[in-house]
Design a protein around this nucleic acid. Sequence first.
DNA 1: CAAGGTGCCAAACAATCGTTCGGAAGGTAA
DNA 2: TTACCTTCCGAACGATTGTTTGGCACCTTG
Lengths: 163, 163
Amino acid sequence: MRDLAKAVNLQGGSLYAHIDSKEELLFELVNRAAAEFIASAEAVPTDLPAKERLTRLVRGHLEVIVHELPNATVFFHEWKFLSPELQAKVTALRDRYEGYWRRAIEDGVKTGEFELEDVRLATLFALSALNWTYQWYRPGGKLSLAALSKRYSEMILSALEAR
Amino acid sequence: MRDLAKAVNLQGGSLYAHIDSKEELLFELVNRAAAEFIASAEAVPTDLPAKERLTRLVRGHLEVIVHELPNATVFFHEWKFLSPELQAKVTALRDRYEGYWRRAIEDGVKTGEFELEDVRLATLFALSALNWTYQWYRPGGKLSLAALSKRYSEMILSALEAR
DNA sequence: CAAGGTGCCAAACAATCGTTCGGAAGGTAA
DNA sequence: TTACCTTCCGAACGATTGTTTGGCACCTTG
């Protein structure tokens, strides 16, 4: 808390004129990140073909991670340290977000674009591959977000597509 | 440290008859996990077809994660808190492990089994999808390790295969 | 003008952190 | 036997943790 205070030129205790607890602050961070993921998924029209929807979901997901790297790191790592009640709220948002992905994949199975034994596992697979990027991707490096997004969505689509 | 001591029926300070520091203990955990990943990769014969090698690498990787869940969690999360020197050692092991994967994929590209623009990114993609499983997989649940391994390797192979 | 709220500091609070210390008990080697 | 080494306890160490307190300066609203 003293480090955070210093970052805004305050004394440690002065933060408490603005917040009630450290946990409230953590929840705020995690909650905002979750909201951004959801917003990016909601921006994808559901009347597009499943492949196109998935490509856009991938792009949106990576954009949120990359543009919000420190926040995303907190989001993925620290939500476990929230109280059970706050954790439940985060889990609810995460489930809601996963829902957008699952439905896109389900629709693709219905239209025959995809062919899968386990839609939930496929959803997890795709999100897993994407989530790990916060561990290694560094903006400003050789790999642009656009290139990363293109290659990753190609691989994800290949993994799901009917052959 | 006091919690760890309690887990082996000791007082907090008594641990220091056996170790020099908390960091030494953390490094030991992380190092062991890394060694297990490497051992599992080295058990895969390099004269097999690339697809078969990759299937076995997937199986081995998931086995290590699942059999060593708490340790794997520490491995993925806490290595960042080691001193720069110890971090370098861990990074070296990680790079070595990634090498087994990269070479298997490279060989697959040479034989025409796989078709990829960026081998390193494909390696990262596969490992990313696998690494995240420590976040959600729970042994004893509906999904057996064998089933998870089968489905995941199918999806990974589909993502890499020439079409 | 007065009253009350807000934002901040400096200091302190109790709890907890990793670690050290002196001493006691037991085992091993001479 | 003596001497040492290992293992452990109980207590303490200094540093750091999240948070509270009292007071001061400022702003807004009546």
